[in-house]
Simulated assay, not measured.
Amino acid sequence: MSLIRVLYKPLGPLLGVAGGLVAGRLSGHLWKLVSGDDEPPAANRKDRGWGEVLFAATLQGAVFGLVKAAVDRGGATLFDKVTGEWPGDTGDDDKS
């Protein structure tokens, strides 16, 4: 692994934190659009049904997964454009 690729390692957690903040806000906005409530229901709320709690969790998980993939891919793409080296697995390794 080259020195340039090693320099990318500390960027991953920083991008992850930023992505988490964006995902949290986005999932909150989506929940409000879908349900009209300001916050998704907590799993331990007695006054909320299984369907609502599980749907809210599914929506939140999908948003976090989407944002994480977009942030990771965008960070790697930008790093590649700036340095000329892809920071992750290139798929060129022959594992047979």
Rank of each mutant, 00 (worst) to 15 (best):
Gly28Arg: 10
Arg45His: 01
Pro40Phe: 05
Lys9Ile: 10
Ala57Gly: 12
Ser35Leu: 05
Lys81Leu: 05
Asn44Asp: 14
Lys46Pro: 11
Ala43Trp: 10
Ala69Trp: 15
Trp31Val: 00
Gln60Ala: 13
Gly75Asn: 10
Thr77Gln: 06
Gln60Arg: 05
Thr58Trp: 07
Gly91Ser: 05
Met1Val: 06
Pro87Tyr: 06
Arg25His: 14
Pro40Ser: 12
Gly61Tyr: 11
Leu78Gly: 03
Glu85His: 06
Ala57Pro: 08
Val53Leu: 15
Val6Leu: 13
Gly36Ser: 02
Ala69His: 07
Ala18Gln: 03
Asp47Met: 09
Thr83Phe: 07
Asp47Ser: 13
Gly20His: 02
Ala56Phe: 01
Lys32Ser: 13
Ala70Gly: 04
Leu26Gly: 00
Gly65Ser: 09
Ala56Leu: 05
Asp38Ala: 12
Gly36Lys: 00
Thr83Arg: 10
Met1Pro: 02
Asp94Ser: 10
Arg5Ile: 03
Pro41Ala: 13
Met1Ser: 10
Val63Ala: 15
Met1Ile: 01
Ala42Arg: 02
His29Trp: 06
Gly16Gln: 08
Ser35Thr: 14
Leu14Phe: 07
Lys9Met: 11
Arg25Val: 11
Gly28Trp: 05
Ala70Lys: 07
Arg48Gly: 00
Leu66Pro: 07
Ala23Arg: 04
Trp86His: 09
Leu7Lys: 03
Asp80Gly: 02
Gly36Asn: 00
Asp47His: 11
Glu85Trp: 02
Leu33Cys: 03
Val67Trp: 07
Leu26Cys: 01
Gly36Thr: 02
Glu85Phe: 04
Phe55Gly: 09
Ala42Met: 06
Tyr8Met: 07
Ala23Pro: 00
Leu59His: 06
Gly49Lys: 08
Leu66Tyr: 11
Asp94Glu: 14
Gly65Ala: 13
Gly49Ser: 09
Val53Arg: 11
Ala42Gln: 01
Arg25Met: 06
Gly49Tyr: 13
Arg5Met: 04
Arg45Gly: 00
Tyr8Lys: 02
Gly91Glu: 06
Lys68Ser: 14
Gly65Gln: 08
Pro40Arg: 15
Leu15Ser: 10
Glu52Met: 12
Ala62Asn: 01
Ser27Pro: 03
Leu3Thr: 09
Pro10Ile: 10
Gly20Leu: 15
Arg48Ala: 01
Leu15Pro: 11
Glu85Asp: 10
Ala56His: 02
Lys68Cys: 14
Met1Glu: 12
Lys81Asp: 02
Leu26His: 00
Val63Phe: 08
Ala18Tyr: 11
Asp37Pro: 01
Glu52His: 10
Phe64Met: 15
Leu33Trp: 09
Val34Lys: 07
Asp47Ala: 08
Val53Asp: 01
Gly88Pro: 03
Phe79Asn: 03
Gly19Lys: 03
Gly75Pro: 14
Lys9Cys: 06
Arg48Phe: 01
Gly24Asn: 00
Val63Thr: 09
Gly74Ser: 07
Arg45Leu: 04
Trp31Ser: 07
His29Gly: 02
